[in-house]
């Protein structure tokens, strides 16, 4: 089985992705991660304005067989949360890199992006 690993994203070993657009970064979990979890039934996310620290957990994704913490790839302030996931958690399964995104943060330190995995590195990890 092969999984999508979009070229334009950076990754964490714990299967989160980040997409950077100027000073804002959008965060979600990968195609591999959603497949491992199975049908997602519940997502818990922080509120707007909360501070995230790179490498620390910021939320929870629950399926019927597992609960996983979700870790922040970068530090910064939460500027948007994907409310749609509260009613339709299945978006994480259906479109993990698109409509299944979780939140946006205003980057505190763009330099942290260099610590993340490249698509090639992440692709090797899950191969």
């Amino acid at each position: 089985m092969s999984f999508d690993v979009p070229d334009d994203l950076r990754y964490l070993e714990s299967h989160e992705w980040v997409r950077v657009d100027d000073a804002t970064a959008r965060v979600g979990i990968t195609d591999f991660a959603q497949d491992e979890l199975g049908d997602v039934v519940f997502v818990e996310l922080p509120d707007d304005g909360e501070e995230l620290t790179a490498g620390e957990e910021f939320g929870v994704v629950e399926s019927i067989k597992a609960v996983s913490d979700v870790y922040a790839p970068v530090s910064g302030t939460v500027t948007a949360v994907n409310d749609a996931l509260f009613d339709e958690p299945e978006l994480v399964n259906e479109d993990p890199f698109g409509e299944g995104w979780m939140l946006e943060v205003e980057l505190a330190d763009a330099g942290e992006l260099d610590d993340l995995l490249s698509p090639e590195e992440y692709g090797d990890q899950i191969a």
């Binding site: 629950e62 399926s63 019927i64 067989k65 597992a66 609960v67």
Partner: peptide, 11 residues
């Protein structure tokens, strides 16, 4: 059931 011990163990 993910709240429960048989799945979530020490958590």
């Amino acid at each position: 059931q993910t709240r429960e011990q048989h799945i979530r163990k020490e958590r």
